[in-house]
Amino acid sequence: MTNPDAPTAGADSSGKVLLIKAKGGLGNRMLSAVTGLIYADLAGRRPVIDWRDGVYAPRGENAYPLLFQSPDMPDPALFDDRTDGVTPAIWAGRLDEFPVTMVDGDHSGPLVYRKSCVDLSRLDHDAALAVFWSYVSKLPRLRGHMARDPRFRGRSARDIMADYLTRYFSPNPRVEAAVAAALGPLARPVIGAHLRYTDMAGPLEAVKQSLAALRTQMPEAPIFLATDSARAQDDIRATFGDVHITEKYLPKDGRHLHGAQADGIDPVLEAENAMIDMWALARCDHLVYSKNSTFSGTSAIIGGLSGDRLVNVDRFNPKIVIKRFLQDYL
């Protein structure tokens, strides 16, 4: 929902707009949007977040203002009919479409997004409307621009991302109340654990081993578990006591949560449940996670979790280390 007390988004003295589209899950689209928001500020464009792709709200309805107390932004539908002054030109007359259709079925490879994303190497595009999207954060590609801008110079990427997440992604009141209700009764410290175990199966045994090690140090610490898998949830709750969860829909056949609408599940409600998990993890004292997941990585940034408060179960996995490097810089 729009926060009436929030400032108008972005610097738009030029009258130019950056339409920020999305692809993927909640963490992916939040960190991707942060890149777009920073690019908009660097380029003097007004940002407009467009989450009408049907993943977290009925198709055609913008999920962003439903889920977050967002700064004032125009309705992205206002730009749908624009046919000129658009970059990349592939979007002209197609601004009601989404990245998933633009990639023509080719969802692999770190460079797929570049054909339909504004050229991030330049800030001086003449087009009145530019379109940004990426599957993950592309902040390292803006490093040169940020080094020349006093608003960003000398600040760490993590600090900048945390700042933009706070400004543009404050949860709606239902989510805030649910997070407080979930964590409020729990004794401190609380161990958070996240495991994606459906379409991208995470290391369940490594998560359990890390939880066991933390429980050895803090035997009375409750665990807050966030997972997309009924099987993983049942396994961890059978292994450890005092495990707390957000009650949410988990497909029994192992499908990922983005397919919940096929089962008649309200996509906005399930998006809010995912946000409850994300912000609850952010407010835990320790977090067991995989850096292969942008979901829990976003939680860590929101919560300011670092150092020995984080246990990355994939920190020695060379495939994931290389994958993340390529995604950041390409």
Rank of each mutant, 00 (worst) to 15 (best):
H145C: 12
I322S: 07
S108G: 12
M1G: 13
Y135M: 11
G144V: 13
K248F: 12
R122E: 10
D75R: 06
T87K: 12
S32E: 13
S210Y: 06
Y135K: 13
N3S: 14
F152M: 08
R82F: 02
P219D: 05
W133N: 02
A22E: 14
E272I: 02
S306C: 08
V17Q: 05
K138Y: 02
T298K: 12
A260F: 03
P65E: 00
R82V: 10
R315S: 14
Q261S: 13
P7W: 06
V131D: 10
A271V: 12
K252Q: 15
D72M: 03
E220S: 15
R309Y: 03
A178S: 14
V321Y: 05
P219H: 10
A57F: 02
R45A: 13
D242N: 14
L67C: 03
I301T: 15
H244A: 08
Y56F: 15
Y135V: 07
G60T: 04
G154S: 03
A128T: 15
M30R: 13
L186H: 11
V268C: 05
L66D: 01
G297K: 00
P88A: 10
L66P: 00
E205H: 12
R46N: 02
K248P: 08
A177Y: 00
D81M: 02
A221H: 05
T198W: 01
A187N: 06
A182W: 00
V311F: 04
M102T: 02
Y168T: 04
A63N: 01
P58I: 03
Y39T: 04
L42C: 09
A282T: 08
S299A: 15
V86N: 05
A33Q: 06
Y197N: 14
P140Q: 12
D149Y: 06
P203W: 00
F240N: 01
T294E: 11
K252W: 07
A282M: 06
K16G: 10
A181I: 03
S296C: 07
Y329G: 00
E176A: 15
W279N: 11
K23D: 05
R255P: 06
K252A: 15
V103T: 10
A260D: 12
K138D: 03
D53H: 05
R237N: 05
R188D: 01
R29Y: 01
G24R: 02
P318S: 05
A221G: 08
F240G: 05
N28F: 07
P219I: 10
M102G: 11
V17E: 05
R196Q: 02
T246L: 04
I322L: 15
N62P: 04
A180Q: 13
S134N: 15
D253E: 13
